[in-house]
Design a protein around this nucleic acid. Structure first.
Lengths: 189, 189
DNA sequence: CAAATTATTATACGCCGTATAATAACGTCG
DNA sequence: CGACGTTATTATACGGCGTATAATAATTTG
């Protein structure tokens, strides 16, 4: 691989796509944690100049936002089932993505500008589902907050534990204890 | 104030105490958020050389740990009252400190090495209280996790909102909605 | 085919945390 | 009381970070 100077690449060489950058960024995040994901490290891994990333994303926060979008855009409530089961399904889907990428969770939570987007949508989905389940608007909002806050708190615990021992075997009970708590909450709902 | 060169300060000049450094650090955190708290900015505010901080704290994480300790060491369950009320009191005390220093919450949550200390103690206090309230050990642990995770999730929401608009008027409903959720959870307990 | 646009790289700036070393006052002990 | 080790501080410097600015070369457009 000969070194390339500055200038637009010729058309036959395949382009550096944003999605390639995102997937490599996620790989670094999963492997090395939040501190391992630097613009320079990402560029090196993709094989491009650090500044090229800025052509596709406004800045580091923009990159993280895009990363969060790409991961959480798949989180939706199941289409069938009784409303209560759909609530459980939505939270479970959300939590499942969190478990897959603990360091991404930490990145989202530690950067104020990254957080709101996906959390707002999921909260609003949840509120709608709770109303469909027969709760009053007030109680839907109350329980929406309870469930989302509980999920975020649990996610945080997982993310922090994960950062502490990257590349060690994951603690085997995180998923179960979350589900137990969620079931208990749904009973009270 | 004449500039001082290197060397130990004379005895009549009052010492730079760790607690002074901590209180100024907390002031910066409250005023400028997590990103405003740098070793250099803190040193400038205290009026000392950045490296002097390292005489009192091992590194930036150590400083943050000490900060968290100084704030959260006052969080304990009330000594009287029925066990359920003491649970509520402990969680409320914890949450109250969180509300006072949103950026500290964020600092704790984003640094894996800072988090565990105070959270573990509070969780263990909580578990004991729940057993005193008559719950089985299993259910005490389950509800301990639920309550702590809920509190952390809610704290996170406050912290992130606070970082977004530092020095603006705080959102007036954060405290109430937390208490509403907590009451609902305690009913189900 | 010239000019504008676009995708990339090169260089550099100002921060950051902190390692290392120098310095000056203090405490100890003969 | 003086030598000397200890302690609290400052000075300097290093490597890494995000990213502003500018140069460069291929493509697209008129």
């Amino acid at each position: 691989m000969t070194k390339r100077g500055p200038g637009r690449p010729s058309a036959n060489t395949e382009a550096v796509s944003p999605s390639k950058i995102l997937s490599e960024a996620l790989a670094i995040l999963d492997a090395k944690g939040l501190e391992g994901l630097t613009m320079r490290a990402l560029a090196a891994r993709v094989g491009i100049n650090p500044m090229t990333i800025y052509h596709h994303f406004v800045d580091r926060d923009g990159l993280t936002r895009a990363l969060a979008d790409s991961v959480y855009s798949a989180v939706h409530p199941p289409e069938d089932g009784d409303p209560r089961a759909r609530v459980a399904g939505l939270i479970a889907a959300y939590h499942s993505e969190v478990l897959k990428h603990p360091a991404l969770t930490l990145a989202i939570f530690s950067r104020p500008s990254v957080f709101p987007g996906h959390a707002r949508r999921i909260t609003s989905d949840l509120n709608k589902l709770l109303e469909e389940a027969g709760l009053s608007p007030d109680r839907s909002q109350l329980w929406g907050h309870i469930l989302v806050d509980y999920t975020h708190g649990a996610a945080l615990a997982v993310a922090l534990a994960g950062e502490h021992n990257l590349s060690q075997s994951p603690s085997p009970n995180t998923g179960d204890s979350f589900d137990d708590g969620l079931n208990e909450l749904l009973k009270a709902l």
